[in-house]
Design a protein around this nucleic acid. Sequence first.
DNA 1: ATTGATATGTTATTCTATTACCCGTAACAA
DNA 2: TTGTTACGGGTAATAGAATAACATATCAAT
Lengths: 169, 169
Amino acid sequence: MTDTHAPRPTDAIGFASHDHHACIEGTVAAVAARCADEGLHLTPVRRRVLEILLARHRALGAYEILDVLRDEGLGSQPPVAYRALEFLTKHGFAHRIEGMNAFAACTHPGQDHDAAFLICTGCGAVAEAPVEPARAALERTAEAAGFTIARTVLEAEGLCPNCSQSHPS
Amino acid sequence: MTDTHAPRPTDAIGFASHDHHACIEGTVAAVAARCADEGLHLTPVRRRVLEILLARHRALGAYEILDVLRDEGLGSQPPVAYRALEFLTKHGFAHRIEGMNAFAACTHPGQDHDAAFLICTGCGAVAEAPVEPARAALERTAEAAGFTIARTVLEAEGLCPNCSQSHPS
DNA sequence: ATTGATATGTTATTCTATTACCCGTAACAA
DNA sequence: TTGTTACGGGTAATAGAATAACATATCAAT
Ligand SMILES: [Zn+2]
Ligand SMILES: [Zn+2]
Ligand SMILES: [Zn+2]
Ligand SMILES: [Zn+2]
């Protein structure tokens, strides 16, 4: 894609470097634990899709994910990917990025929850940011109109710290 | 679609009743004036797409718009609709609703601008809300991460005042 | 063994969006 | 008048994203 410059999203979470291997394993373990708790089935396909998302730390389209699954013999048709993504997003283990028709792993998997996203147009990295401040602001706006919010889509596109430097505008 | 209950989005703007005929004419006139000012060409197809969006006060998919254009002999292939929509969105006369893959007319056409949207899942009405409070909140969050925002997607789905009553939850 | 619930496999289709190429006209210069 | 350029539009083909529908498998609980 537009990966024409340096910073590797693979190494970024919240745009900071970290122990990526541990990050993946830890998150998968946490998700597996929550599934066990709640009687959810983290099946091979679902687990693998989560791993694929975690490994990139960026938003992936369903068909990109499907390509990987196909290479690994885990499924080759769209519904395979979409069903796994539905499971993951429904339970708050991944999020859909509306502005990109793509999906990203949740970085603090908990109950089904809305989130805010910072999406770098330079390197594709996606960071999950606290949703509350912006959501609260929207709530106030909505309240004034008599509108009851059920779900929010809060996404910001721009440049991450790494790309701000390399793309000096 | 899901238009199974009473309130007609056609009669709502910001979820309040208003003189719809004047609303459409006024907005088209304002847009025409701005185009004249800035040397933009509000061609028949572009004007008609704007009118179609204004007439509904809800988000329309490109193909819904294309259906209308086709009936009127103004074009029958996808690029006709997408080109007009690109013109309108590029100049701030309409907005794309990311969460719906759809488009809505701007209710205060000015320079190219981001906006926040309140989308009623009951009747489909879309209201353009002030973007600043929520955007400012996101800005603060982003700043803390060293992230520079270029564009925001702020959308809230829920129930408008009319639908809150008819759908007593 | 039979049933019911859940997860997968597979095909086809729908919906959304873009690319590429060609045509006609307006504006402007040679 | 004749290029030449810029722009908008017509059309066909294709790409990309998502779902519908139906068949099959798996497994636990009777
Ligand atoms: Zn999350
Ligand atoms: Zn970046
Ligand atoms: Zn607007
Ligand atoms: Zn409503």
